[in-house]
């Protein structure tokens, strides 16, 4: 499939490419791997384009955290809503598959999903929004949950935050109200151990888990990078929010394998190297025949090459 290099209408139908997103018929472990591979290669491609000088501004790669995005969003249904943060590409791609819209957006092109105005951190599609300012997205996601509740629907509002965001007061104001009001909100806390250049131990006193439990909000905590495990955990969490209508937290201790944005990584090399051993794609490949993941990798590669070529040619 080739996407013609023509101007895309602003509110176009987002077309998911089966080479990057898989199909409902594809075995689940293959589809989950495919989506993670897609996100990984999209981010690596972006970093390459930055080095090439094609992109402006900044970007925050989620390399190493793909399993969180894919595992959770596997359970997000039509009418549910996702609010994401500065590190939103993985979440956006897992939700929409819209690589071209995002690539064009980051390239600052008019055909970008927000006309090149939002850029890397501020993207919007039906059922998805992101904002690069920390903290404030949490009450906003709670407000979306309140709207769902007032309408009597069983839809769920999901918000992705990081460990660094736990420093923002808006988070705690919202936890209090979300618990008081029984809002159908799932907070996915991706603790990647580093808030930009600051390690968790300089940022976060006490317990992450206890922060939420103090408000009576149940927490499910994991250190896994295995997308199959995250898929199962997230499935339970979203189902629980949907049936109880109450706020829950999925706390994922993960790791960011790349720099925070660009050229700003001062972490010990040994620490990072150790995490490459347990990174989600490596774990997922252990379940799949080599010929299968090689085929998937080739399909993702071909699709992304087309996306880049198409995006480059856009006005």
């Amino acid at each position: 499939m080739t996407i013609a290099p023509t101007r895309i209408p602003r509110q176009r139908e987002l077309q998911a490419d089966p080479r990057t997103m898989g199909t409902p018929e594809e075995p689940r472990d293959l589809r989950l791997y495919r989506r993670m591979r897609f996100i990984r290669r999209f981010e690596e491609t972006l970093l390459g384009l930055f080095d090439e000088g094609v992109l402006n501004g900044t970007t925050h790669a989620c390399i190493g955290q793909e399993a969180d995005a894919v595992g959770v969003i596997e359970h997000v249904e039509e009418g549910d809503h996702i609010f994401s943060n500065h590190r939103c590409h993985g979440h956006y791609l897992a939700r929409t598959g819209d690589a071209l819209g995002l690539m064009a957006e980051i390239m600052g092109k008019e055909a970008g999903v927000c006309g090149g105005i939002g850029g890397s951190q501020h993207v919007c599609a039906p059922g998805f929004m992101s904002n690069g300012v920390q903290g404030g997205i949490v009450p906003t996601a709670a407000g979306i949950a309140l709207a769902m509740k007032l309408r009597g629907s069983d839809r769920v509002s999901v918000v992705f935050i990081g460990d660094g965001t736990l420093g923002e007061g808006a988070v705690y104001e919202t936890l209090n109200i979300a618990a008081l009001w029984d809002l159908p909100l799932l907070i996915v806390l991706e603790d990647n151990e580093w808030a930009q250049s600051t390690p968790t131990e300089l940022n976060t006193a006490g317990s992450m888990r206890a922060r939420f439990e103090a408000f009576g909000i149940p927490v499910t905590e994991t250190t896994t990078t295995d997308v199959a495990e995250l898929d199962a955990l997230a499935g339970n969490e979203i189902a629980a929010v949907r049936t109880t209508g109450k706020t829950r937290v999925l706390l994922v201790h993960t790791y960011r394998l790349c720099h925070h944005s660009k050229s700003d990584d001062h972490r010990p090399e040994e620490e990072v190297a150790l995490r490459w051993v347990t990174e989600p794609l490596a774990i997922a490949r252990q379940r799949i025949a080599e010929s299968q993941w090689q085929r998937i990798d080739a399909e993702v590669e071909a699709a992304l090459a087309e996306v880049v070529a198409t995006a480059r040619a856009l006005p």
Binding site: P139, T140, A142, L146, A147, E173
Partner: peptide, 24 residues
């Protein structure tokens, strides 16, 4: 539809933002 809140002006504003984005 008339909801009293804790003393949390930031969250009042943020929750209002979410309501509005969701069509309320």
């Amino acid at each position: 539809r008339v909801r009293t809140t804790p003393i949390s002006e930031g969250a009042i504003a943020g929750i209002s933002a979410g309501l509005a984005l969701a069509g309320m």
